[in-house]
Design a protein around this nucleic acid. Structure first.
Lengths: 147, 147
DNA sequence: ACATGTGTAACCAATACGGTTACAATATGG
DNA sequence: CCATATTGTAACCGTATTGGTTACACATGT
């Protein structure tokens, strides 16, 4: 069981947008799909989510997708929430309907809940502290980008 | 997408074991299933994993499952690893085979990897710091246990 | 009018999960 | 030895999710 690759694809797409420069060829969902190595519809779905979350704007028909915010103002947590890979506070599934006639059954959910929430929050805080800017800077370093 | 309830059921089962007292009725997988409100086979599967991980010992045939370690020496991370809800370092799925002809495609995986590992580690560290003892203490408090 | 790109539904196959049934293997007590 | 209770495990099933595909309506710019 894993957090869907939708999240990493979304970061990929946002990185393409962030690294796009004036004068570059128009970045269509088709082109993005080429970089990701998937079908453009997949990209469009994700872009729909990113748009709904206010991270990108998308020009209908004539094409073109743009970041609404600078890369340094987009955290990986923003992306994670935008693509809805995990429901709020629901990373861990807790068995439901344990037997209330048993004290453990009656109390296990609440006894576990705080810890599991803390674990999820810890994960999300790392994502909150990581920006798209950092990702693209890393990509540039690795790629030997000059600008 | 959620981390399987197998984990929470495992904690439930371990809590039953931890709170078991001398003279209590034998705790069979059937009884545990009653508390969890599931089928005994489900419990047995999980017990198989916990046993393989060295957290419990199980008496064949005549029945009876026992903690191998004191509850304070069993972390929730131990349980999480025992029930194999998440593969090591694999909480996040990263799309594979991005296009290496594109600098973003070529580098996105490694550019993301460290951050995602850190996020997973942060979550797991919270679990490492939480013990079965804490869970059972909480259950006892909530249940108004006197023992 | 036409070409191009977006948006979305529907379909499909694969996978994981949790529940169930079936039954072999094992230990214990009578 | 036998009956009983319990464990261990395979197989099956239905459900949900995912990511890819196909189809096509809609929107824009030339």
């Amino acid at each position: 069981m894993q957090i869907s690759s939708r999240f990493s694809v979304a970061v990929h797409v946002l990185s393409l947008l962030a690294l796009q420069q004036e004068g570059d060829v128009l970045l269509t969902s088709e082109r993005m799909a080429g970089s990701v190595n998937t079908n453009p519809v997949v990209i469009r779905r994700i872009l729909g989510q990113l748009k709904k979350a206010g991270l990108v704007e998308v020009r209908p028909a004539s094409g073109g997708t743009f970041l609404v915010r600078p890369p340094a103002a987009i955290s990986l947590l923003d992306v994670y929430c935008a693509v809805e890979v995990v429901e709020e506070g629901q990373l861990f599934s807790i068995h439901d309907k344990p037997n209330p006639a048993c004290p453990v059954g009656r109390n296990i959910q609440s006894a576990l809940d705080a810890t599991l929430q803390r674990a999820q929050t810890a994960l999300e805080q790392v994502l909150a502290g990581a920006t798209l800017q950092q990702v693209t800077t890393d990509i540039q370093l690795k790629a030997g980008f000059t600008g």
